[in-house]
Design a protein around this nucleic acid. Sequence first.
DNA 1: GACACTGCTGCCATAAACTGTCAGCAGGAA
DNA 2: TTCCTGCTGACAGTTTATGGCAGCAGTGTC
Lengths: 230, 230
Amino acid sequence: MVARSERLLALLQTLRRYRRPVTGTVLAGETGVSLRTLYRDIASLQAQGAMIEGEAGIGYVLKPGFMLPPMMFSEEELEALVLGSRWVARAAEPRLASAGADALAKIAAVLPPDMRDMVDSATLFVGRKRQDEDKADVSAIRKAIRLERILELHYGDEQGRVSRRRVWPFALGYFEHVRIIMAWCELRQDFRHFRTDRIIDMAIDETRYPRRRTALLKEWRATQDTPIEQ
Amino acid sequence: MVARSERLLALLQTLRRYRRPVTGTVLAGETGVSLRTLYRDIASLQAQGAMIEGEAGIGYVLKPGFMLPPMMFSEEELEALVLGSRWVARAAEPRLASAGADALAKIAAVLPPDMRDMVDSATLFVGRKRQDEDKADVSAIRKAIRLERILELHYGDEQGRVSRRRVWPFALGYFEHVRIIMAWCELRQDFRHFRTDRIIDMAIDETRYPRRRTALLKEWRATQDTPIEQ
DNA sequence: GACACTGCTGCCATAAACTGTCAGCAGGAA
DNA sequence: TTCCTGCTGACAGTTTATGGCAGCAGTGTC
């Protein structure tokens, strides 16, 4: 009775592992089920909102994302999720902000009526809205951090001097109105901070930088006078 | 094939409606199912993490909370949820903050390995951590706002003058290090702001204040020079 | 254009599951 | 005690899921 939903999650997992299109036959084999049932499973997942695309002659691909299984949240946890999403929608860079708004809408859509007002509840985030638009793709920066990739920055500093640098990004700091990349700068052979809104242009090097980002973070922390949280 | 999971959600909904314990017989009647099956359904829900408590001779009660059905999130939406939860865990009042951390942990637990590092990913929230502990229960304040209940405040202002007031709270503002209750003050017959960390003592009046909180919010906005977001 | 490969749907017999009825045990309340 | 209730096991009937088959349509290759 729970076997089916588990199998569907396993199918999603399998689908996520492959980057290239996978044929139904392969998926059926991996989930240990007949081809006919696999087609039904795919249909079930799609009905539940999974973004699986199938093309005749090609196979199936899953658009990047993840299906959260049914989960129980306490009232406060839900409140935290809602408040957090609203903060992201308000304070993060535009692209992530709209993702936050989307996530919030998805959650609100399934909330019972008496809980839905939590979403548009009277919570205000104070301070003027940031106006400096990022030219750089902050999502790409975050991805570069996760994958420990070298960033090639075309950067203008406070004095307006423009420079090109190769840096090893290991953290992204959210200040009230700006976001700061913490990185090791190959040019200066030292830690340097870069405001995302001052990045003129940017490219991600496909090579991995030679250190672990957690080690860099730890080392960087040691250089700071006032400890920074999280 | 979808009937069962729908019935389980309906059962949760039903259970949520009642505040007092409900007997299995009643629940079976409302969901249109036999008592035996109801027991099986309850067991299923509990296995999925629902906090349902049953006691012989009493009935069932559902601890306040909500079960999110399976949902599909894009990579960015997930990132927004994670970042938002981390912000809450860092910036909100202690109780909500720990709820944020719990929610984050729940999500992290079901994330596939290659996405899990998103959670402890290098994101820093900058600014020193707030040290002023709230004496007041901010969760209760938020609840009072939602339910439009009168708050009786024992409050000390900037000059250290202590006063007692009855106020109609309609919004909670998150500043960088403090939280502010926006309310209509019965004493002053005007809008007033109260820092949560300056509340000495507090009680919630069970009577509803005579206006709608959205109307108060709208009116309050009109009195502000600089528009405040959200 | 022919062919191989694949997604997708309908049909149907079989296998698996869910469900209801019945019975019995255990714990709390009056 | 007696009643009410939660909880579990067993079993038959019902529903649902599954697998195999056939067929259609779209894609890429030769």
